[in-house]
Amino acid sequence: MKKFGAGTWIWGTAVVLSLAFSAWYNNWRGPLTATEIDTYMEQLQARPDNNPAALKDLRAFLEADDGREFIMLNVIKLHADPQPHPQTGEPTDASKLLTTYSDAFMGRLFFSAGHPMFLSDRVGPYLDTFGVTERPDWTWTSMVRYRSRRDLADAATFEGFPGAHLFKTAAIEQTFNFPTQTRVQFFMSPALLVPFLLLFAASLAHLVVTLRATRA
């Protein structure tokens, strides 16, 4: 293989992979349309276990869609004692029940470029906390990245979601969550990190090929 041909192949592959990753990881479809929102809400309202107040909040969130990614903050208190398994009724550790839910939900979310940003266990008491009337013994907190609000709606209306969600409600004693958007971060987003690593790898590969050709 000629040096020019090798370089073209290396850089071409890196560029194609970077573009493919960007096409998957970023939202190129823009904000939700009114028709899309109505369709999602009709599906959720048709479920027998729907919560009107929660659906009202969800609609407001979807209608305010700006097309950007968001990060869902979750704070969770697991049941300390084993809970009945949603399918068998057998007492099961709460963490195992939540893992069953997470495997189903996060597995699907990953295909829409959603993923955990971090998962942290609580390791100490409340510090500098005030203005709250209740202090549950929270177990851990996590932040999950969603590519878009459309992906959240897709996950919520997925036909397998109600069955998986039973494991979440069985495992968790108390929880709260809300969506956030990043103002400042001190680490590189995967949207930039992955293309950077691909191009960096291409530069190293091209250097190796060039050095070998020079010594030949």
Rank of each mutant, 00 (worst) to 15 (best):
F70H: 12
F70C: 06
I71D: 07
M72S: 05
M72A: 06
M72C: 03
L73D: 15
N74T: 06
N74M: 11
V75Y: 10
V75H: 11
V75F: 11
V75C: 12
I76Q: 06
I76M: 12
I76D: 02
K77A: 11
L78C: 09
H79G: 11
A80L: 14
A80N: 14
A80S: 15
P82I: 13
P82S: 14
Q83A: 12
H85Q: 08
H85I: 08
H85N: 10
H85M: 06
H85W: 07
H85T: 06
P86A: 12
P86L: 13
P86H: 14
P86Q: 14
Q87W: 06
Q87V: 14
T88G: 11
T88W: 09
G89E: 11
G89A: 12
E90F: 11
T92L: 10
D93S: 10
D93P: 05
D93L: 12
D93N: 09
D93C: 04
A94V: 07
A94Y: 05
S95E: 07
S95F: 04
S95L: 05
S95Q: 08
K96D: 12
K96H: 09
L97C: 09
L98K: 09
T99I: 03
T100S: 01
T100P: 01
Y101N: 05
Y101R: 08
S102P: 03
S102I: 12
S102C: 05
S102M: 13
S102D: 08
S102V: 11
S102Q: 13
D103R: 04
A104K: 03
F105Q: 05
F105Y: 13
F105W: 08
F105P: 00
F105E: 04
M106N: 05
M106E: 05
M106I: 06
G107C: 03
G107P: 02
R108F: 02
R108Q: 04
L109Y: 00
L109F: 01
L109K: 00
F111L: 05
F111W: 04
S112T: 01
